[in-house]
Design a protein around this nucleic acid. Sequence first.
DNA 1: CTGTTAGCGCATTCAT
DNA 2: ATGAATGCGCTAACAG
Lengths: 354, 354
Amino acid sequence: MTVTLADVAARARVSPATVSRVLNGNYPVAASTRERVLRAVDDLDYVLNGPASSLAAATSDLIGILVNDIADPFFGIMAGAAQTEIGGPGDGSGRAGGEKLAIVCNTGGTPERELTYLTLLQRQRAAAVVLTGGAIEDPAHQAAMSAKLAKLADAGTRVVLCGRPPLPDNASVLAALAFDNRGGGRRLTEHLLSLGHRTIGYVAGPVERTTTRHRLEGHRDAMKAGGLVGDEERLTVHGSYDRRSGYDATVELLRREPEITAVVAANDTVALGAAAAIRDRGLRIPEDISVAGFDDLPFSVDVVPALTTVRLPLFEAGARAGRLATGKEAPPPGGIATIAAELMVRGSTAAPRE
Amino acid sequence: MTVTLADVAARARVSPATVSRVLNGNYPVAASTRERVLRAVDDLDYVLNGPASSLAAATSDLIGILVNDIADPFFGIMAGAAQTEIGGPGDGSGRAGGEKLAIVCNTGGTPERELTYLTLLQRQRAAAVVLTGGAIEDPAHQAAMSAKLAKLADAGTRVVLCGRPPLPDNASVLAALAFDNRGGGRRLTEHLLSLGHRTIGYVAGPVERTTTRHRLEGHRDAMKAGGLVGDEERLTVHGSYDRRSGYDATVELLRREPEITAVVAANDTVALGAAAAIRDRGLRIPEDISVAGFDDLPFSVDVVPALTTVRLPLFEAGARAGRLATGKEAPPPGGIATIAAELMVRGSTAAPRE
DNA sequence: CTGTTAGCGCATTCAT
DNA sequence: ATGAATGCGCTAACAG
């Protein structure tokens, strides 16, 4: 029926062991035999049996990339970059040599699915796991994650965090690439303050997420440094990281405080919704209200007016995570690296009107 | 060292076969023994060895989803929807029962990687493969794909096409869900013609892609029906499916024919670039030039003015593909279904000025 | 409903 | 540099 390594061996007139050796290429084999084997492989159209080889070798070539929302370019860009580094260019032969198989898993941001995917990956004896994006801060879930990651690490799986802060017990993670969300958030609000804004609404992401908290803390640090305290709670509305949520939250913000002169959104997508709400209210951006986002996704430069935001090097970070996961790159000292966030001032923010 | 099914069996005082049966849940087991086994599993913190079980069962629970560009929400939405149907909600136990593992593979739109991933999936004995988005029309590649898909199908892998036209030899695909790109393209241009436009530029996608060709054909059908022929080539510029390409192509279009009153883009992302180019030229949308896109991605309603486009039910199509891949839903008659595309008229198109 | 028996296809010792 | 033998951990008949 299905052609096996033994069939190839028979046709090439060598032992199965030899075929295995040329296929894995990690053992000396005479050039002539190698060639003979390769020809037999092509003739028979042989494809290695992954499960069998993983079983025998006790490791697989799967690398899992966990994302919170695959439909969000924030994750898509990181995952795509990581996959580029991992997947290799493919040699076009369709023969598929020793490549790793980068697979992205969509957790939907839920704790259950995050753990389930990790278990599934553990079951597959994944070679590495890359966790992208913010973590959930629920203590029980954090403990479960730490335990699970420790088990994965024990089994030889490389664990890499990309855009996620290190674990309390960072021992089981090879490398954590954390974005400077707090610094970025702070600089963004400082920019607004320097423009003269004093009443600033904040559309935050979901609670119990590291990304949400860090960006918000950066914002409040700046506000505090500017002497603006006391109104934090009233001028903050939490929502999810989507456009609709940004719209609704902004409507609520405007209801609570019509004198707002600027709205800072948890990310660019949310900012899009915020901007729509402001326009629907008959207000202009930035003349009446300034709007700012975070991430600098590709579309942000194209909206009108172009969005002031904080640029995160998503592609570079994802690529680096991919290299870390494949062992192509050495982990940073201490296993932790902070990735800078750069303020991008564009047309959506301006001085408040007098 | 690592705990195996035999360890669980020993602790639960049953045979390995029984443990296997409760874990796979596809065979009658007494409630009391099941419970005992499950407890042993939890006590020992046992995780099934995927490769071993795949080897023994000659099939795995992996389902591959191939996408051309994971950073593009067009694919992200479909892949996410498919994964939702496939992955199951997870039971929160982290135990991971009989779920399928939906994995998305980013081909980058290149023929080589498409084939490589298919081989990798074949090697893993994937339960199903979902190919999303347009196909590459190069004859050699098409033949290679057909052959590869036939082999996969032979090996018992379900092959589902989502947003991709059926193969010439559709026998090996379980179901092909094709978008009505031609009809959508036609209706979009008809809309423009009915508004009074006569000189319409077209920013097409990459050549040799079914999506590109079908949308362009729809456009030209409408133009022809309106008696506008002869200028097709001059008023068409090909590029890739990204924002930058839309910008550049539109600059070129405007250079070739400054009298253009409308620009139709290959998709919404390209339309964003086109709009930027038009604005940078000092022209207004839609007063000076109308702009239209395709897909109706989430951001399209938020750009200013809101984008006239053709809505594709990406989420629904992806979900259906997921159900097809898992066998939850019966394939359409003949294995082929055409998915309607709906014209969405918004602010970015208007009658040309006189 | 449960236990026994055989492999699944390959990577690795160990020889040679 | 190559071959022979062993077992990875599990599922699937087949009994009972």
